[in-house]
Computed example of a mutant assay.
Amino acid sequence: MKTARTACFLLAIALFLASAGPLPGASGLDSRIAQEEARMRILEKQISEHQKRAKQMGEKEKGVLTQLNSLDQKKKVTEQRIRVLELKLEKVKNTISNLRAEVRLTEQELAEMMHVFENRLVDIYKYGGVAEFNLLLSSTTAHEAMETSYLLNRIALQDQAMISGMLEKKDRLLQAAAQMEQQEKELAVNTSHLGKERKTFREEINKSNAFLGQVRQERALHEQAVKELQQSQKEIQQTVTALMRKKRDEESRDRGRSAQYTYLPSGGQLSWPVQGQISSTFGTRVHPVFKTKMMHTGIDIRAPRGTPVRAAGPGEVLFAGWLRGYGQVIIIDHGNNLSSVYAHLSSMSVRESAAVKKGQTIGSVGSTGTATGAHLHFEVRVGGDARDPMRYLRK
């Protein structure tokens, strides 16, 4: 009976091992890591394209807006890298925690099994092979004796396989945990390194702010900064005009393309891209950074950093990238020669040529470019010319 009970116990353990699944995964984290890595690649590509355009346009390397733009871009790339590393670090910690829990469980199971086998060894010492021999002698037929012999052999093999398997599993899990710990150390080093880089970039931004203070005091630098800002306003107008012309030319060659997108009906109103207080209206104003009267080609809507920015109307993304002075910018074509501009974004969630629906999230509020704080700079343009957005937004 004792041998039969042992066989049943061993069979149960074997079934347990066979049914044991893989360690808990982190598919959610894997998905987030993949998304953030994709955003990082897009960001790096957008910055590279902006730098190429700047070089082609002959922007001065020491220009005020150019320096601010460079600092913004370095900061955004570094923040994105840190975001990816933090997610990877979180994944490693979760994996290590799961592995250690599995090791503890395996050790407990092994201890219980060893206790069973110790009792069996005591029985073997007391009775030797008498019990098994009696079991064989009690067989009434040769076939029954063969079955009993086969069962006893399976029990012995199962004993050996069980101990070996559990020891191998324990060693394998310990090795995996050690590897994960090493990865965690490496990620911690990388995260620390990038944290130092962020600190360096913050110091550079502080230097830039000090430089802006110098710009306000020195006439030559002040005039240069104002000239650059005025030029950046012309650049965005030229960008919108050129992109819309290119798109119309493509549509004329491919008549079916225009049907792929839903545009704002003629005379239709736009919805508010973000809810918040208007801190600066359309028209002539004193620039908050350069303290000079200049034309403000849109409205500024104050909102917390990271607040979702939504498409003011249906259309197609004409541009998603960086523009000098405006930081991260999205331009949407709403049809009928109407377009909207969303500037100073902290992140962008749409790509160029993508169709967007009214109210769809396209990015988030930030302060990239020449901005004194988190807000959305929103413009409405007709044929590239800036118009007062309040005339188009729903009351």
Results as ranks from 00 to 15, higher is better:
5 R>I: 06
13 I>S: 09
14 A>N: 14
21 G>S: 13
26 A>Q: 12
31 S>K: 13
33 I>T: 01
37 E>K: 14
41 R>P: 06
43 L>A: 04
47 I>H: 13
50 H>Y: 15
54 A>Q: 07
71 L>C: 11
74 K>E: 15
76 K>L: 15
78 T>E: 14
79 E>V: 04
98 N>M: 04
100 R>Y: 09
101 A>M: 07
103 V>N: 06
105 L>H: 00
110 L>H: 04
118 E>C: 10
120 R>G: 06
122 V>S: 08
123 D>N: 12
129 G>R: 11
129 G>A: 12
132 E>H: 02
136 L>Y: 00
140 T>F: 03
154 R>D: 10
163 I>P: 02
174 L>R: 14
176 A>M: 13
180 M>C: 10
184 E>N: 11
197 E>V: 09
200 T>A: 13
206 N>T: 14
209 N>G: 06
210 A>E: 12
212 L>D: 03
213 G>V: 01
216 R>S: 08
219 R>A: 12
219 R>W: 01
221 L>N: 06
221 L>V: 09
225 A>H: 02
226 V>G: 01
232 S>D: 05
239 T>P: 01
241 T>H: 10
251 E>D: 15
251 E>V: 06
254 D>R: 13
260 Q>S: 13
264 L>P: 02
264 L>V: 00
271 S>G: 09
273 P>T: 04
274 V>M: 00
278 I>S: 09
284 T>D: 10
295 M>D: 11
295 M>V: 12
299 I>P: 02
301 I>K: 01
305 R>T: 08
306 G>N: 08
318 L>Q: 00
322 W>A: 02
328 Q>T: 02
333 D>Q: 00
339 S>K: 03
356 V>D: 06
358 K>R: 14
367 S>V: 02
368 T>K: 01
388 D>M: 07
